[in-house]
């Protein structure tokens, strides 16, 4: 695996070996499934059901991920902060959240923290009921907090990996702490941790399937509802798997394109 020159691949493989055969294999399966959907009413029916849930899967991911990034950035700044309280509080959050299964966190947020919050709000004079907080909102909050802890660690690692001279040069020019962070440190951190962020986004997309345990009708829940009515497990699970693969591959390719763009610039 490691060549005599220390490089990971000892020589540049031929074009034939470099071609993405795995992608071709997947594409072939996609064509087969597409053909089934086009010609078979049953498959078409299932695909239509899953499409109904697609919006929710994308919505949950698209809202939870930016929230997780925001929470993660805030906590990462806490982890490297000189402020004792801020640092300890961030460490507590990261350690607790990272140590709990995401599924358990979703239950805790949905059935403990949200009712608790509603009670507190009522105590303070607001008139709301727990039912007024939709399950999809609870699930997005739970996923955002769960992934915020991962992003905090990722961003902290990126921030502390930057050469010390970058912050020194910025401060020596007269830039404030905030300007140094915003214009010098964070843009470089973002470029460094981009592959990890892409990985986390894919994980979040997959974990969004957990919302089905609360009855939120994402693609997984639609598949389960269909199965309980028809017992058509194979067809619905093949299509469900393919929906997720299509989404995650799309994200992976997008992240890789972004990485290449930055790499060209850094050369």
């Amino acid at each position: 695996m490691i060549g005599p020159d220390g490089a990971l691949a000892s020589e540049r493989p031929s074009l034939l070996a470099r071609a993405p055969w795995w992608l071709l294999a997947l594409a072939l399966v996609a064509v087969l499934i597409g053909w089934r959907v086009a010609t078979d009413a049953l498959w078409r029916d299932i695909a239509a059901r899953l499409l109904d849930g697609l919006g929710l899967t994308l919505l949950v991911t698209a809202i939870a991920f930016p929230l997780a990034l925001g929470i993660g950035l805030f906590s990462a700044l806490g982890l490297v902060s000189g402020n004792l309280f801020f640092r300890q509080f961030s460490t507590l959050y990261v350690q607790v959240v990272r140590g709990l299964p995401v599924l358990v966190q979703i239950f805790i947020v949905a059935f403990v923290l949200v009712p608790l919050g509603v009670e507190t709000a009522n105590f303070l004079g607001f008139r709301i009921a727990a039912q007024d907080v939709p399950m999809v909102v609870r699930v997005i909050a739970a996923l955002a907090f769960a992934y915020g802890a991962f992003e905090a660690e990722t961003l902290r690692g990126g921030l502390t990996s930057l050469p010390r001279g970058q912050a020194e040069a910025a401060r020596a020019l007269g830039l404030s702490r905030r300007q140094t962070l915003r214009h010098i440190l964070l843009p470089q951190t973002f470029r460094r941790v981009l592959p990890t962020l892409g990985n986390d986004l894919i994980c979040l997309l997959k974990d969004s399937a957990l919302v089905s345990v609360l009855g939120v009708r994402d693609i997984t829940q639609e598949a389960r509802l269909y199965q309980s009515a028809t017992f058509r497990y194979t067809e619905s699970l093949v299509l469900l798997a393919f929906f997720y693969l299509a989404l995650t591959l799309l994200v992976a390719l997008g992240v890789r394109a972004l990485e290449n763009r930055y790499r060209r610039h850094a050369a």
Binding site: G165, Q166, P187, H265
Partner: peptide, 8 residues
Amino acid sequence: QQFNLFPH
């Protein structure tokens, strides 16, 4: 000594 230009 190390220039410290901003590479991004």
